[in-house]
Structure formats: C-alpha cells, structure tokens
Design a protein around this nucleic acid. Structure first.
Lengths: 214, 214
DNA sequence: CATAACTGAATGAACAATCATTCATTTTAT
DNA sequence: ATAAAATGAATGATTGTTCATTCAGTTATG
C-alpha cells in the first residue's frame, strides 16, 4: 500500500493516538452492539485494524473497558472543569452553564450515554467501576452543593437546602440523560433545558426569573 | 403430591413457576456478575437446576433476557397502577405516593436497578428493548402530566407547565435511582424523598407546604 | 390395591460456535 | 540495519444449544 494519505489511520500513529483510536472504536461498538455483545474483533474491525491489536495496546479486554470508562469520565471532567472555570465567579450563571453543558450534544448523545449506562449497570459487579463512578458522583455533588450554597446565601433563600438542591439538579440531568438514551426521537434539548430552568426559577426566583429564552 | 417439602425447587413446580424461578435467578445473576458476564450456566446454577434448563423453558438466552425485562417492567407497572388507583382522586397525594413508591426498597434497590440499567444500556442495540422501554417512559410521563395539570388547575399555579413538571419529576426519580445504584452506601431514602419534596414545595407551595416529616 | 405403561419435566454430557489471547512473521519507521 | 508496530492464523477456554437418557408423577390395567 502506497501514498499514506489514503491509509490514514493504519500506521504511523503515535502509541497514545492508537490507544485513543481503539477507545473510540470501543465506544462506537458499545453504542451499536451493546456491551454484552462487543468483542475484541468488533473493536479491531471498527478501528480498521487487526485481530490482536487490542491485546497489544491494552493487554486485556478488561483493561480496554476500564480505560474506556476512564476516558469518558475524563472527557466529561475536562468539559465540566472548563465550564466551571469560566463561570464560577457567578454561581447562578455557573450552575446554569453546567446544566447547559450536560445537555449539549458533546456530552448528551445516545452514543456516549449508552457507554455510561453500560458501565453503571456493572458497578455492582466490577469494584473498579464502582470506585470510579462513586468518586465522580461525589465530586460533582460537592461542586453543586457549593454553588447552591452561594446562591442561597446571596439571595437569602432561607428555606432552601443546598444539599437537596444539588442532589435534585444532579439527579435531574442524569434522568434527562436516560430519556435521551431511551427515546431519542422525542427527546428535545430545549425542552430538557427548560425543564431544569423551570426548577431553578421555582427555587431561586430572584436569580433565574425571566431569562431571555436563549 | 406427597409432602414435597424436601424437594422444593427440584420438581413438581408448575411451568409458569419454573419460568419465574429462572427469571428471578437471571435478575440475581445480572446484579451480581453484570449482564455481560451472565451465562446460562450461571442462571441454572443460581436456580439450583441443570445446564439445559433455560433452553427448555425459554428456547434461547435472548428470549430469557427479554422475558426478564418484561417481568421487571410489569412488576413495576403493577405497583405503579396500584398506587395510582388508591390515590388518584387527590392528584397532589397521588404524585407524592408515586414518588414514595419509586423510592421504596421493593423498587429502588441496587439489585433491580442493575437490571434496569443493563437493559437501558442496550436499548440502541436491541430494538425490542427500545420499544418496551420507550413505551414505558411515555406511559408514565402521560400519567404525571395529567396529575401535574390537575394540581396546576386546582392551585392556580399559572406559571407552571404540567409537561415540564412531569418531565422533571420523572427524571428526578430516575436520577435518584442512579445514585442508589452507584453509591448505595451514601444513598439515603429519606434524603432522596426530601429532595423530591423540596422540589414539589417549591413549585406547588399550597399543596405541599409543611407536611409532617413522615 | 398393586403394578405396569405412559407422560413430560429435568438432567448433564457432548457439540459447535464464539471469543480472548498468544505469537511467529511481516511491515514500517528511523 | 535495527527496533518497534502491526498482522492474522492458531489455540485453548468459554458458552449457547442440542438431545439421548433419567426420573417423578399420573393414568390405566389386572
């Protein structure tokens, strides 16, 4: 095979890039065939590479799957932290920005969600999944609690509990992810966003009342 | 039948009971080992029966899994409809009762949730799962919309949207299920219930303000 | 009542297919 | 030329499925 431009993705990719290529292929396979029917042959084929390639780069299938979970987790974290960094000065704006982020196609699309749900479903069976997922859960809850507390303090919302608000917001977006995964046809990002906004308006009226319908 | 107490579970069980026994074993296996590592040998062993038993009663593994999904779905539906029937006269009480039900151990326990998440994660891969899950989603959303509309009408909550409230409540409980599954140690049913209650108080104050902390 | 014939549920060994993993060989890059 | 990366055929383990056989419970027969 000559003139490498036609064969981009077959060779000459740095080790880390190849690993990433295989993780991407794994995500596609899990979304397309489900975790329980995803084989290493599927992953290799999806990546356009050969049978033994996964064991070469990840040693084992278990390891590939764990690294895939780590990747989607870090991918989410990067977006979360970037959004947070840009808006954290204003807690109300920050909360809304984080929720908008959660509903963006870069995070909330059926392909990636199928991966999340697959790993969540195995949390009881695979302790390493459990540790990673539980740590995530707590980290983001902590951030939301802090934001909610600052808003409550700022607005004097005396009968609001920051911890409960944080749990509600976190659960709300997780639940919206489920409807995006299960019934993508009738899932509407704008409606989903309005669902959360209506909650925010109800609990923090002074901070979220009558926003421009952006 | 001669005092079959010594041989309970080996013979003399009606066909439907045996199928149910195998479905129960399947649920246990999925919770314990994950869907992707659950084999028919596992299911048979969990049921205390022999290798070929699943094919005898369900023809194939695929069929067993689909029937398992159908069972957990109908099991939920029975509880949902029973709760609804008992409380539907008072929409506010009904809404709260349905949410309490969603958080009860008979529905919200890590074992059953692992099964739900496993099937949800394969919705994109298995059209029959998708159809069943999407239909469920829509059915319960319809009920919640109706209840919310009646409460809005009753209380004159002009700036509340029944459809958004319904989506929020449905997503909220789904999201709480995730935290129950992923981090059962720090999951607290009372806190979960208060999370939803605080939302209801915020949006329907006249109907949910200052309930006794039951 | 006793027992022989019958029914169909259950067994578990055997089979064929699938799959993760290995590795000798080939290809590519330096 | 050397080293690293990738290949793909081979391998052994796992797993869904099949089926001849066993066994419990029922019915028919003497």
């Amino acid at each position: 095979m000559v003139a490498g431009s036609a064969t981009v993705g077959r060779r000459a990719l740095a080790k880390e890039q190849r690993r990433q290529q295989l993780i991407d292929a794994t995500i596609k396979c899990i979304a397309k065939k489900g975790l329980s029917s995803t084989t290493l042959a599927d992953v290799a084929k999806e990546a356009g590479l050969s049978q033994g390639i996964v064991n070469l780069h990840f040693d084992s299938k278990d390891n590939l799957l764990y690294e895939t979970l780590r990747y989607v987790s870090e991918d989410y974290d990067k977006q979360f932290m970037a959004t947070y960094a840009q808006t954290s000065a204003d807690p109300a704006a920050c909360l809304l920005a984080l929720i908008k982020m959660d509903l963006q196609p870069s995070i909330c699309d059926a392909k990636k969600l199928a991966v999340w749900f697959a790993f969540w479903s195995e949390v009881k069976a695979v302790p390493t999944y459990q540790k990673l997922c539980a740590a995530r859960e707590r980290k983001y809850d902590d951030v939301l609690v802090d934001l909610a507390a600052r808003i409550i303090d700022d607005g004097g919302y005396e009968d609001a509990d920051a911890s409960l608000v944080a749990k509600a917001l976190g659960s709300l977006t997780d639940g919206l992810w489920l409807s995006c995964l299960v019934d993508p046809k009738s899932f509407d990002r704008q409606v989903a966003l309005n669902t959360v906004k209506s909650y925010l308006r109800g609990i923090f009226p002074d901070h979220y009342l009558r926003e421009p319908t952006a």
